[in-house]
Amino acid sequence: MQLFFLLEQVVNGLVLGGYYLLIALGLSLIFSVGGIVNLAHGAFYALGAYAFVTLSGTFGFFGGVLVSPIVVALLGIAFERFILRRFYREDPILSLLVTFGLALVAEQAIRMIWGSAPLAASLPRELRGSVILGPLLFSKYRLMMLAVIAVLLAGVWVLLNRTSFGRVVRAGIQDPDMVAALGIRLQPYMTTVVMLGVGLAALGGAMFAPITTVHPAMGAEILTIAFVVVVIGGLGSFWGVVCAALLVGVVRGVTVFFVPAASEASMYALMLVVLLLRPRGLLGETIRKFES
């Protein structure tokens, strides 16, 4: 019985990890390609949730989940074109300040547009409930989310590793000057990467809105965890981030099982251990352009 229960927590942790992954993957991509630590990433997650609540009134639940990330991804294009683009080659402290400021502006903008009180959002009745497999219990909705995340993940992997688009992006991560010398402009690629990262974060917000409090500071809440995941996974590594997200989820689930009070602290302890053993993170790669 205890063993089953532990297993249940492990699987539940995997689902949670999938959700962290949606936010962490974009964060990692934007850093790898542009060298920018995007502190405004959480804001896009929050915007995704708010856009979902607003749009699901008109388009229904599934329409909201689908349209909200698209709308926010379009915002992401503007964000890259008018703000991020100016900071790729600047001192990282500048982009840190700008994105931090932007996160504050976004949070206040949300307060001004939607008010500071949390917004109501519910799951449609048919998506509620649990799947019971023998002694194990899983939330139906979370299993669906896990499936969606797995498909998206596969899509992103294929895009980065099996397409010419991906080859340019990966080359750009390592050596942007060489890419430029070959006559390829990295800018449109950057726009796409930011759009993708921001869209994934917004999708996370939209999918989680029905099962978490939709409030203006929700972006700041998730950003810390996303950073922990990126740091544990190692910068520039797709699979590093994937492993780290799932690991953080599982470690939290298992900690709740044994020491409930330590569940929040567990991921920081994990980060400490990983960084002591592997300072670059689990699968962190050497990124040539950051080494000088």
């Binding site: 509620r128 649990s130 939330s139 029905p210 099962i211």
Partner: peptide, 29 residues
């Protein structure tokens, strides 16, 4: 919200609630 998501059968009571938290939970939760 998450309790409604899992759909467990045990009735819920509580010794503390603010109206805003109830409103934020949304219909049916």
């Amino acid at each position: 919200k998450q309790y409604a998501e899992f759909g467990l059968p045990y009735p819920m009571i509580g010794f503390n609630l603010n109206t805003a938290d109830a409103w934020a939970a949304g219909a049916g939760n």
